[in-house]
Nucleic acid binder design. Structure first.
Lengths: 198, 198
DNA sequence: GTCTATATCCAGATAGAC
DNA sequence: GTCTATCTGGATATAGAC
């Protein structure tokens, strides 16, 4: 049974993770301050150190939650794939929606990427995150019957993942420079180019 | 005429910009410290404030130099374009070489991108940088006769730029996950998809 | 313009009451 | 587990000698 104490602690933990996501996204890992996160979560600085060993662990715990939420969402939508056009649509719309309505997610991923490159031990976690996304894409591509062999599906997944992030980079800094339809178009080009009509 | 004093100052300025590039790449904007940059440049902390108004201006001056060096390099190589395959090769090899031999450039661009998103006034500079790269790509695409209309060339440029950065993101965090030949392949797919053989 | 020395501030993290 | 109060270190930036 879960006691009321543990419920309260669980709530401050969640509040801290939410606040951490917001503040780390706004100021980056090094630029974010522990007191500010505590303030935004409505708790004291000390409360952070009662729940996490420090700034680093708070950041990693927050990122892990973001990553897992994304993985769960992908699992759900991957099950619904049927044909090529629907796959194309699904791959693109979930990402463009994220970029436009939840840009913080993209900022956090970029921050996490930089953090991992600068702290090699955590490099692997980001590598796994990207690989997981690719594996999911590849499975959907095979599932939709776009291409028969898994090898080519994997290489298509690499390409799709690349354009997705590159699109976000361009769009977030200048939304007039690129539109969601251009991402659809590009992925369509890739699928056409990779699977030329006989 | 340039006096010896100005030469010496010019040299410390250059040394500071070099050191800034290295330290900002290693630790990010917020994570880098002014004393560390001064140390790496072999000068005192005070020398930085004699040449720049502070950390921010030093960072922006350093980034401006990086951006301009890249623009000059693009101008040079854009003049050499002839046919489609050579264009494909050129677009890809200069970038894969940068990613593999000078990853700091990529890190600095990512850092600058985040900095701009968090400091909207400077947003425009990054937007212009990306737009300049795209314009250069588009011109080369038209020049190589890949496609006649400038509009489609522009959209292809968006796609190529996106895959280039997305490729770097995947490769830097896990070099086994993606190879330079995959970037060539992807851009080839894009060109095929965008310009279907009649 | 460059140095040494320093002022000021705020970060991350801890101690101890409750 | 959470608070208040505090320790300690290092940050940005400046002052003044050379």
């Amino acid at each position: 049974m879960v006691g009321i104490r543990q419920q309260r602690q669980q709530r401050t933990r969640e509040a801290l993770l939410d606040a951490a996501a917001s503040v780390f996204a706004s100021h980056g890992y090094a630029g974010a301050s522990v007191p500010q996160i505590a303030h935004e979560a409505g708790v004291s600085t000390g409360a952070i150190y009662a729940n996490f060993t420090g700034k680093q662990e708070l950041f990693l715990a927050m990122m892990r939650r973001v990553v897992e939420a994304g993985a769960a969402a992908r699992q759900r939508s991957a099950a619904e794939t049927t044909d090529r056009d629907e796959l194309l649509n699904r791959m693109v719309t979930t990402w463009t929606a994220t970029v436009d309505t939840a840009p913080d997610i993209v900022l956090l991923m970029a921050e996490f990427w930089l953090y991992a490159l600068r702290n090699p031990p955590h490099n692997e976690l980001v590598a796994e995150l990207l690989a997981d996304v690719r594996a999911n894409l590849a499975a959907s591509i095979v599932g939709a019957g776009v291409v028969p062999d898994a090898d080519r599906a994997g290489r298509i997944a690499v390409a799709v993942q690349a354009v997705a992030y590159g699109y976000a980079m361009q769009r977030l800094v200048d939304e007039d420079a690129v539109s969601p339809t251009q991402l659809v178009e590009t992925v369509d080009w890739i699928l056409r180019g990779a699977v030329p009509a006989r």
